[in-house]
Amino acid sequence: MPVFMLDVRPAGAPTSESTLRRVEAGVPTLDVRDLGPARGDGVFETIGVVGGHPQALDAHLKRLAHSAALLDLPEPNEEQWRHAITEAAASLPTDRQGGLKIVLTRGIEGSGQPTGWIVASPAEGDFAERETGIRVVTLDRGYTSDVAQRAPWLLPGAKTLSYAVNMAALREARRRGASDVIFVTSDGYVMEAPTSTVILRFGDRIVTPRTDIGILPGTSQLSVFKFAADRGLGTEEALVPTSDLLRADALWLVSSVRLATPITHVDDTEVSVDRELTRAMNEALLAREN
């Protein structure tokens, strides 16, 4: 699991000299005073890697910059991150999938110098759930659907390092005999999963929840919508009532590494699965360039 540390440069600064350092296993890499691990004061992206190629890189860099802006972090130097991500991806085996976790934090308090790193990980297992599907439970996120307008300081739509609630939700799912969670708003609308975007099919229409209700824009969701459009399916971002989870013709959780995982049960109720479309969707996601 290679780790790469960045000498973070301001946006627009030249990056001709090497600003990336590969850290050997067992070598200390991070100051414990860093505000990322100490307070969750940072942002991150997880990028899928196939055949040494980082997927949907443009979309991930755009979302990293958006998250950084929401936290008043310095704008990422896109050229520097693009080079670092490409080099880190090349360190992974090409015979199986992998992933990169890229992190940007505020750094040590008072230093004014952000911290950046990348962890490159080969995928574990064969992603059998893409075929078998998963069970999910719905959990109230504690927000109403207008949270992004009403309370922007809660940072809805930012991919931050503060993941304690998401991990607690996944533990609750396992206690209930499920594998994952779909968060819903307190006023009854579908949001997202802790680490995935929700996709629904209604006939020849593919739908995902609107991001203005306080959720992350999905990078893999953009690829799914392109795939759907190429097949002549309609696509839509909409307010999705929680009840629609049980009336949809198919449901998926979609993320950069797991890709499209079909949902078989919602809160112990069996739901329809479109296996043919799932296979085609995953073939397209594995083959994407950007």
Rank of each mutant, 00 (worst) to 15 (best):
T86F: 00
D244P: 01
R247L: 01
G133M: 02
L277E: 06
D268P: 01
R231N: 14
L285C: 09
P10V: 09
S179I: 03
L239H: 01
S256L: 03
D268N: 14
Y143R: 13
L253K: 10
D267R: 03
P54G: 07
G51A: 12
V23M: 10
G40V: 06
A178F: 03
A68Y: 00
P76I: 03
R258Y: 02
L100S: 05
T160H: 02
T132I: 10
T185A: 09
S145C: 06
Y163G: 08
A228E: 05
T264M: 01
A128W: 06
F202R: 07
S255L: 08
A164P: 08
T269S: 00
A148D: 02
D140N: 15
R63M: 04
L286K: 04
V32K: 08
A120C: 02
A168G: 13
N290E: 10
R210E: 14
R174Q: 15
E237A: 14
A164L: 15
L71T: 00
P54F: 07
L253F: 10
E283P: 03
A158S: 06
A59D: 07
D268W: 07
R175I: 02
N77I: 06
L216W: 12
T219K: 04
Q80T: 05
L245I: 01
L233P: 05
S121I: 15
M281P: 08
V136M: 09
T15A: 15
F227K: 00
D140P: 02
R22I: 05
E172P: 09
P37M: 03
D146P: 00
A228N: 09
S196G: 05
A169C: 09
T185Y: 05
A178W: 03
R39I: 00
A68C: 06
S179T: 11
V8G: 10
R82G: 09
R247A: 07
D230S: 15
T235D: 07
T138V: 05
G98M: 01
A228R: 00
R205Y: 12
V23T: 12
A59Y: 11
E87S: 06
D58K: 08
T261E: 08
S256G: 13
P217E: 12
G26V: 14
I215R: 08
D140L: 04
A228F: 11
A13Y: 13
W117T: 02
K226R: 14
R130V: 14
S111G: 13
V23N: 06
V23I: 15
V27A: 15
Q80C: 06
R22W: 04
M167D: 11
D41R: 00
P241S: 06
S223E: 15
S196E: 10
V43S: 10
S18W: 04
Q55S: 15
L253R: 04
R82D: 07
L92C: 04
V3A: 11
T105A: 04
W81N: 13
S111C: 12
R288L: 10
T138Q: 08
T242S: 12
I206P: 08
G12H: 13
R141Q: 07
V23P: 01
T185M: 01
A25K: 12
L70P: 00
V254A: 13
R33W: 02
K226M: 00
G107V: 04
A287P: 07
D204W: 11
V136H: 05
L35W: 00
A280M: 05
H265C: 02
R96E: 03
V271Y: 01
R63K: 06
S18P: 11
A284M: 08
P93A: 06
P194E: 08
